[in-house]
Design a protein around this nucleic acid. Structure first.
Lengths: 357, 357
DNA sequence: GTTCTTACGGACAACGTTGCACGCTTTTGG
DNA sequence: CCAAAAGCGTGCAACGTTGTCCGTAAGAAC
């Protein structure tokens, strides 16, 4: 009953096709046929082989399979796991792969294009059958070359590609939804916080799309867009808010490009003694986990990571199946109004007084 | 300059040892020697081969290597990525593996022992050379059997094992640190929120260790421990707080077993109109990302995920190197006092009045 | 000048699969 | 009743490595 000790190093060898074949009294080719579901197998043999597989606990050797072409492994690169969107995407992938012979394997790409490239190469060294890259940072050309080598789906980059598929949330639309929401509440001075573009044209990362969507929507409403560039982080949001407050006319609403930055905006507002939402409306984008909890209750935009993952997987399997025409899938975002947004209230009277230059 | 189109399906084959050998004008065995750093290689040959490898961009085929014994891949199972501890552990692993020939690969184990087992098996099918399991939920026996088959390190489970190593934060100690902190501030009625044990003895998961540490420390201070069992979630924390408030004597401090639950406690306090920390001290455990941000600023206990990852990797590499004696590494936690904890202030006067039965 | 050692490079047999080519039965069709 | 076809099982050659074994040539020792 006590666990086996390692002291006697008689590790039981993993069962192979040959072992199963001996057990069932057939050739190993026959076993292979059964496993592959190939034709030319009698029901009796199938049964005996299946029993032997069961008995020995046989599992195919992925390395050996990889040598013959397919590893039945999907490589997923995520940049960083801390954001809640990425785990959701992964969950979507896992669910979509359930019931297929494929298994996904993740790799943390890290925060630089060079590292991300190395991670992708590590995945390719391991003979994955396809790649799903979540918000990769490297140049489009590199991805095009990659896509020519291996079935690839890129998540969260706007734009079209020749050699790989993309799945992306319509972030222009998401930003528009938010602006419409704020305008319908009565806001006019709405500041957007963004981050430096990063020069990945012709591809467009999330923040650029959100910013453009914001600008278009503002213009459409006849309002003047005003963007503050810091970073998508709590500190970045804080700094952006400080900058926004320092202008001539204090904004009545701050639409942060990311929830995490919105949290910094909230802190800045608190320090200034500005009541949210009475004196300042704050909104974000991403619907991260904390945005939902009572103490924050942040108005934001949700993009379904689950859907993103599921569709990425679908496209990838199609590509593995032989499709070569690139596909681009766009997912509709959803506005999530919560307690940090309201009609601009007391702010109209208070504005000139509390501004400090 | 435009990216190659996939329309002409002339995917360039990946370079093999043989290709490199032809390029360098030597035998493929010689190339293998160079790559493995084996002896019996002249400097000139090494140079020519290295040049050829460079030129062709040769990279070893992990599948083929796996067939000969080593895949140079470390499998890491994480239960869920949403918690911030796990990404940190992964970061620690990545850093520790930098410069070694090994590469880690992650798999999301999911929220049930059955799924987690399947994930681990999927990793083994892929011939990983070793496993790091972060907070796995399955029975100890299963892990013992696993450890007999493959070098394994288990993270975040207290207790000793025969066939694998463990790396764990000293959560008894962490809970004691927190209780000492609260007591030193003057608190006496300190409630702890926990979750049902789950029956994984003789192994002990985090919440049980924290609870025991809390109980011991309270007793040592001559105080009466009081535990509320809900779940480690925002809602769970909220419910636990409501229960804690409903007693005869309202606690002056609530020490949640997890930061995420502490957030729920904060919400409950807010709803009750209790000022934190003036009327109620709130503390957590984990030091998750949001705990640090200004608007929350939660007093908590930090366990270094980075250190955990680094040490897990070290132990695993030792085991892969041949060690069979089990090792168990304990990491010291650190108290992180922030703004949600303070001496019990107005509460002493206010207690009898605001309690509702 | 012969023999022994050493250093180097190459040949080769696995490793566990896949999938084709091949034969042996059994059935079917005339 | 014989030939052809279909059904079924086996044999075998890859796939890209590692690591052992072996042969050769150059240098050292006598």
């Amino acid at each position: 009953m006590t666990p086996k000790q390692t002291t006697s190093p008689e590790k039981p060898r993993r069962a192979t096709l040959q072992d199963v074949a001996s057990e069932a009294g057939v050739s190993f080719s026959a076993v292979s046929k059964v496993i592959r579901g190939a034709s030319g197998v009698s029901p009796q043999m199938r049964e005996r082989v299946t029993a032997a597989i069961e008995k020995l606990g046989y599992r195919p050797h992925a390395g050996a399979r990889a040598m013959r072409g397919k590893s039945y492994t999907i490589g997923v690169m995520i940049v960083e796991m801390s954001s809640p969107f990425q785990p959701e995407v992964v969950q979507g992938i896992t669910d979509a792969l359930e019931g297929t012979p494929y298994q996904e394997v993740l790799i943390a790409g890290g925060l630089s294009p060079a590292r991300q490239k190395r991670s992708i190469e590590a995945l390719m060294d391991r003979q994955v059958d396809g790649l799903i890259l979540v918000a990769p940072w490297m140049e489009a050309d590199w991805l095009e070359e990659l896509g020519a080598k291996i079935p690839t789906v890129v998540v969260a980059r706007h734009g079209t590609a020749a050699n790989f598929d993309t799945v992306v949330d319509d972030e222009y639309q998401g930003a528009r939804l938010m602006v419409d929401h704020l305008v319908s509440l009565g806001h006019e001075r709405i500041v957007h916080t963004s981050m430096p573009s990063g020069g990945l044209e012709p591809f467009v990362l999330s923040h650029t799309a959100r910013r453009h969507g914001y600008e278009q929507a503002m213009t459409r409403h006849g309002l003047v867009p005003k963007v503050v560039e810091t970073t998508y982080s709590e500190v970045g949001g804080y700094e952006a808010a400080i900058q926004a407050f320092s202008g001539d006319e204090r904004p009545t609403a701050i639409f942060a490009g990311a929830d995490i930055a919105a949290l910094g905006v909230l802190r800045a507002a608190e320090e200034r003694g500005l009541q949210v939402p009475e004196e300042l409306t704050v909104a974000g984008y991403d619907n991260i986990y904390v945005s939902a909890i009572g103490r924050i209750s942040l108005t934001t935009v949700d993009q379904s990571g689950q859907l993103t993952g599921a569709n990425s997987t679908r496209l990838l399997l199609e590509r593995i199946g032989g499709r070569t025409q690139p596909a681009h899938y766009v997912i509709a975002p959803q506005l999530v109004p919560r307690k940090t947004s309201a009609a601009p209230g007391h702010v109209d009277q208070a504005t000139p007084i509390s501004v400090q230059h």
